[in-house]
């Protein structure tokens, strides 16, 4: 029995004049209905490309895709573009980062939701409009009957994101992908949207993928967390595992880079040295090795050999050359105390 969403060895490569961009390079994960997967990574880690790939939005483009994407028992990479298009918006939907640019400025919010609904439902405009008003009400937009005829720019940032969510949910999708859903929002508005997404997921029992660089958002929503770096998964596990017992130096780096309000203020942040890699020129061996403080402990393997993503405990996968025992020892004795010092 396969999972509701099963992604196996997904690769998405883009040939360019400068060389092959390996945006996603062998990604495997699965997700059940009603569960949330958080994908964490920095710019260029391949997290957004993954989500567009699942939706089939690279089809017909320059991208070269391989691997398997099973959605509810159906394989999507080999399926025809038109078949995937029919699933898009209905079975799987997406919420984008910046609702201002993601909504068409020339059409009313209502028109855009009506369009989304009518693509997959053979109903009259009137019926679809009623549905749109209903959806706007459900995502907490006051006076939906009059706001339905407003243009996106007449909405505030938070209301726009609500409208975007209403549009994505209009066909009752079973898989919802949210790409940085709150990044463009103010913190108080972000809180409302996070509440809303949690409530709606419970209501619709959909599978949710949240893509973000914000560990707070991930911690709040996710059951599982997948940390991406240079197009590959470097750590994958239950949310508690990844937050309390992380084993990959990159995950440690992310945790150390982030000033936290829920703890005493640390004197210094512990950043990761260097910058995220360019996907054209991913460093050989472990992609993280130029930034990894522990690279020299691998007897040179970090520079030459790509580490495997290996199980370190049930449900916890880590891609690192260091031995699991050493990683755990480092985390317990060095990293964790450092993150918690006052």
């Amino acid at each position: 029995m396969t999972a509701f969403l099963d992604v196996k060895d997904l690769r998405i490569h883009f040939p360019t004049d400068d060389g092959l961009v390996r945006s996603v390079d062998g990604l495997t994960f699965s997700l059940e209905r009603g569960k949330t997967l958080g994908i964490v990574g920095e710019s260029g880690s391949g997290k957004s490309v993954t989500s567009l790939g699942i939706l089939g939005l690279h089809k017909g483009g320059r991208a070269r895709m391989s691997g398997e994407i099973w959605l509810d028992g159906e394989e999507l990479i080999g399926a025809s573009a038109d078949h995937v298009r029919r699933l898009r918006g209905k079975k799987m939907a997406m919420i984008f980062q910046d609702p201002l640019s993601a909504m068409h400025p020339y059409y009313t919010v209502g028109d855009q939701i009506i369009e989304a609904y009518r693509i997959h439902h053979d109903v009259t405009k009137k019926v679809a409009r009623k549905h749109a008003i209903d959806m706007l009400g459900r995502v907490g937009i006051p006076e939906p009957t009059s706001r339905v005829d407003d243009y996106p720019h007449q909405f505030s940032g938070g209301m726009r994101q609500r409208a975007m969510i209403a549009m994505a949910l209009s066909c009752d999708p079973e898989l919802l992908i949210a790409d940085e859903p709150t990044t463009a929002l103010d913190v108080t508005v972000q809180a409302q949207i996070l509440d809303l997404m949690r409530d709606l997921q419970r209501e619709f029992n959909s599978a949710l993928i949240v893509i973000t660089h914000d560990l707070g958002v991930v911690a709040e929503l996710s059951d599982d967390i997948l940390v991406m770096y240079g197009g590959k998964c470097v750590e994958y596990g239950a949310a508690e595992t990844v937050f309390y017992d992380p084993e990959h130096p990159y995950t440690w780096g992310l945790l150390g880079s982030m000033p936290r309000l829920d703890r005493e203020r640390t004197e210094r942040l512990l950043p990761i040295k260097g910058s995220p890699p360019s996907l054209i020129n991913v460093p050989p061996g472990c992609a993280f090795h130029p930034r990894c403080p522990y690279a020299e402990r691998t007897e040179g393997r970090a520079e030459t050999e790509v580490p495997e993503l290996l199980k370190t405990s049930p449900g916890h996968l880590v891609r690192c050359h260091m031995a699991p025992e050493e990683r755990r020892r480092l985390w317990e004795s060095e990293i964790k105390p450092m993150l918690e010092t006052t």
Partner: peptide, 9 residues
């Protein structure tokens, strides 16, 4: 309003 980076926190 700030989300907490701590799943059980």
């Amino acid at each position: 309003a700030v989300p907490v980076p701590d799943p059980k926190g």
